[in-house]
Each structure stands twice: as structure tokens, then as C-alpha cells.
């Protein structure tokens, strides 16, 4: 069986006296091996201290994003066979490092939800005995298209603006707002949306490099979502008093 070399970023903030370094491991490579399989193998057979995150291992939950040979990707669905030479693994930038390949995306994304007020703003009271409000199926599908984001952080890690500006909401944030803007159940006014995202922290911070669009593992149409929100923000901004 062929073998594969991995070069993995190591640093534990709990032991700051040990400076960050790259550590190499070589393991056997069966056909169809994913980075998920490889990292577990390394942990179980070579180095039980290695930290990384997986949950669903099926590209649904967004836990395992990392920089793989220079690209932010989901480790669970990356086959080592598709990569050339040594596999270099780094933690996602922007997010707070927990240790080795593990970063704190949870705190970042909760903050994003709070900042963009990502919930349905409705004045209606729920009546358990009433039938549901109707919605066009096309609208439901349109909402789901934006809602498919799994908050993995690949778009944020690859984004230059997000790397410089701590307060930039990135493609995930702008896409999240787009999701509520197309939802007829959300009663927010143009002005309210503009306040949330009509600034350099939001729609106008984007510099159009579109690394987000290239890196999104869910293949969300981020370029279209970002420009949709940008155009909406211009019209909201110019029309509002």
C-alpha cells in the first residue's frame, strides 16, 4: 500500500511556551481515504494529542473546515487521492485557535447571528389552532437556497477583508441577511436591513475578490447573493430618508 506524508500545524494556546511548528506524519493510504480517516488514524496510532474537529463526517455540519494545501475546505469530504504530494494542514485563519487544527467557529457565528439579528422578525402571535400561512413553493425553495449555508467558515477564512477587518461579516453574514430579505415572513423594513448591513462591515466591505464563491463547499451562489444584497442596500440607502 502506498503511503502519504502529512505536514500539520501544531500549537496549543494552553502551552504558549511551545512555539507553533509544523509536524510531519506518514501513514498508509488505502484507496478512497479522506482527511477524516487520515487524521483519526494519526491520532489513534501516532499522536493522541492532535486536536481537530469532526462531527457529521458527511459534509452537513460544517465542523471540519481547515486549510488543506492552501485552500479552505471541508476535511471530511477531501480525498487524499485528489491531492498531490505532502498534504499540508493548517487551521482556518480569522477564527480563534483552540489548538492545532481546531478553531472556534461557534463563537464567531453566534456573534454574526446576533449582529445581523438572524431570526424572523414578526409581530404575529402563534395560534396553535390556526392553519399555517400560505407560501409559494418557489419562495420556500429560494429561502432554502440561502439557508443551506453550514457556517463552516471557508468563505471567511479565504476572504481578504475578513482577515483585515475584525468586524466584517463576510459572505456568510451577507448571505444570511439575503436569506431573511427574501423571506416574506420577516417584517423588517428597508431601513432596518440597511442599518444591519449597509456599511463596510457588511455589503460595502466586500472587495469583489470572490474567494468565498470559489471556496464554498456547499456551492452556494455567493457572488449572486452578495451582489443582490449590495444592490438592495443601494436602493434601500438611497430611498430611505
Amino acid at each position: 500500500m502506498s503511503t502519504r506524508k502529512f505536514s500539520i500545524f501544531r500549537y496549543n494556546p494552553n502551552t504558549p511556551e511551545v512555539k507553533p511548528f509544523m509536524q510531519e506524519y506518514t501513514i498508509e493510504e488505502p484507496p478512497g481515504m479522506t482527511i477524516f480517516v487520515a487524521l483519526n488514524k494519526i491520532r489513534e496510532e501516532l499522536d493522541p494529542t492532535l486536536m481537530f474537529d469532526f462531527v457529521c463526517r458527511a459534509a452537513i455540519c460544517g465542523s471540519c473546515a481547515m486549510v488543506i494545501n492552501g485552500k479552505p475546505r471541508l476535511a471530511c469530504k477531501t480525498l487524499t487521492g485528489d491531492l498531490k504530494g505532502t498534504v499540508t494542514l493548517m487551521p482556518l485563519p480569522v477564527f480563534k485557535l483552540i489548538g492545532d487544527l481546531s478553531v472556534d467557529t461557534g463563537t464567531w457565528f453566534r456573534h454574526l447571528s446576533v449582529k445581523t439579528k438572524s431570526w424572523i422578525h414578526s409581530s404575529k402571535e402563534f395560534d396553535p389552532n390556526a392553519i399555517e400561512d400560505r407560501m409559494d413553493n418557489e419562495t420556500a425553495l429560494e429561502i432554502y437556497e440561502a439557508e443551506r449555508c453550514i457556517e463552516c467558515g471557508c468563505c471567511i477564512a479565504g476572504c481578504v477583508t475578513a482577515n483585515i477587518r475584525e468586524d466584517f461579516l463576510g459572505a456568510a453574514g451577507i448571505n444570511r441577511v439575503a436569506r431573511f430579505m427574501v423571506d416574506p415572513r420577516d417584517e423588517r423594513s428597508k431601513k432596518e436591513y440597511f442599518e444591519v448591513i449597509g456599511s463596510d462591515e457588511g455589503a460595502f466591505g466586500c472587495m469583489g475578490l470572490m474567494a468565498c464563491d470559489d471556496n464554498c463547499p456547499m456551492q452556494l451562489p455567493l457572488q449572486m447573493q452578495l451582489s443582490f444584497v449590495r444592490r438592495k442596500m443601494v436602493s434601500f440607502g438611497l430611498s430611505a430618508k
Partner: peptide, 21 residues
Amino acid sequence: QEQKIIWRHAKMLKGTDTWVW
């Protein structure tokens, strides 16, 4: 500090977009 981040970012991430900027 920001300039350092940019350079590090451009060097770590392959793909042309950061360099373009």
C-alpha cells in the same frame, strides 16, 4: 499589523485572488 496579515494570508492561501488584491 494589517499589512502583515495580508502577506501571510496571500502566502498561505493558494489561488490568485489575494494576490490580485
